[in-house]
Design a protein around this nucleic acid. Structure first.
Lengths: 207, 207
DNA sequence: AATAGAAGCGGGGTGAAGTCCGTTTATGCT
DNA sequence: AGCATAAACGGACTTCACCCCGCTTCTATT
């Protein structure tokens, strides 16, 4: 018989060699990034250095942005974990407003730390920054806004969440020029944006 | 003698043939955009259709994004004019808060109208959206914020202006997917963002 | 009107992203 | 172990943005 009636919940697991290659490509990409800078990580170069064909690279990651997206994924996951089930005020348990502020600060720091990769993971063809970060931010802000202003029937939570998402992530994605990636992490700029975020949230949530 | 000691305040005016070619290229670009969509406007294609060399296109516009930037320029100029010397509340003469709200609504409408071109004018290499829009927005918001909250020594006007700029323009640049450009102009989405902007500004400027 | 020299022009060249498709290989079944 | 098959692989190919540089044309000057 066909052993399991529902043999494969999903298409089937990734083949072992494929998984190996994915890991290897990611490692190689990180090396190249460290050595040459983000700009110099090309698909051809990566494939060659990894000793694989270009087709393979594309099969695994789809696009150049996809590689950086994958690179981000681990860290993004850790971040998400802390938001969803870490200690307050970032995680659950604190007042919504405190959580909003904490989220903004944490996200600001995260973006500052990952600036180069985040930029590289933007795909100029697809408008929406692929899966990860922005969507999480938007969902989370919407949730917290609703909690913070449960009464407010007058405000458009979806639109506001979208705008605050942009306010939080936009400066890094669009408006701050960063010749040297390390220029933001741990510098006043990130702090100022964090402080300013707090002011913004406090204003918006004042009843 | 060399007639004028400071013969030319600027490098010298654009040569007549160059100006003609620029205009022709812009016209052709508009045609191609209307006919084929933004994506299909390639540098080679544009040059060929205009009956000019690729080199010429590059000399005139520098980069692909530069073309769309130029296409935007006229409208951007009109917009700027209205902000700097049009009738209130968009132009000078109204209360700062009213002007902030009016600016946001006008800018939202503008971006919705020009979505496709604005997107195309983003240069994935240069982080800062080239000259025009964003900088104007940022400057203007900063100015108005200072006027609206002259007392506030506690808030970081620069950072806040940056975040509000992102809140205003970010949704169009990054987060709204627009398979059909006309989907936004004049639809609830733009209105909702405009309304939401008003709420945001009112919150931030409440003393 | 002639002229010098700056500004403009053209199109072949380069590097990188992304596609295609014939070949190879892992995997689950017998 | 042997086999069938879907998945993975590789690398040539296409397309596109952008560069380079020798040649041409405009325009200010005399």
């Amino acid at each position: 018989m066909n052993s399991p009636l529902v043999p494969l919940g999903r298409p089937r697991a990734e083949r072992a060699d494929a998984a190996r290659n994915r890991a290897h490509l990611l490692t190689t990409a990180r090396e190249m990034m460290a050595e040459l800078g983000v700009e110099k990580v090309t698909m051809d170069g990566l494939a060659e250095r990894a000793g694989l064909g270009k087709g393979t690279v594309y099969r695994r990651f789809g696009t150049r942005a996809g590689i950086f997206h994958a690179l981000l994924d681990d860290d993004e996951h850790v971040f998400q974990e802390q938001v969803l089930s870490g200690p307050p005020p970032l995680g659950p348990g604190a007042e919504p407003i405190a959580r909003l502020i904490a989220y903004g600060r944490a996200r600001t720091a995260y973006l500052a730390d990952h600036l180069a990769i985040v930029r590289a993971s933007l795909d100029r063809n697809k408008p929406v920054p692929a899966g990860a970060g922005a969507t999480l931010t938007r969902m989370h802000l919407r949730l917290l806004l609703r909690l913070a202003r449960p009464d407010a029937t007058d405000i458009d939570v979806d639109a506001l969440a979208l705008q605050l998402t942009a306010a939080l992530e936009g400066p890094f994605m669009l408006y701050l020029s960063a010749p040297r990636p390390e220029e933001f992490a741990g510098t006043p700029v990130a702090d100022r944006l964090g402080d300013s975020w707090q002011t913004l949230v406090e204003s918006v949530c004042r009843t």
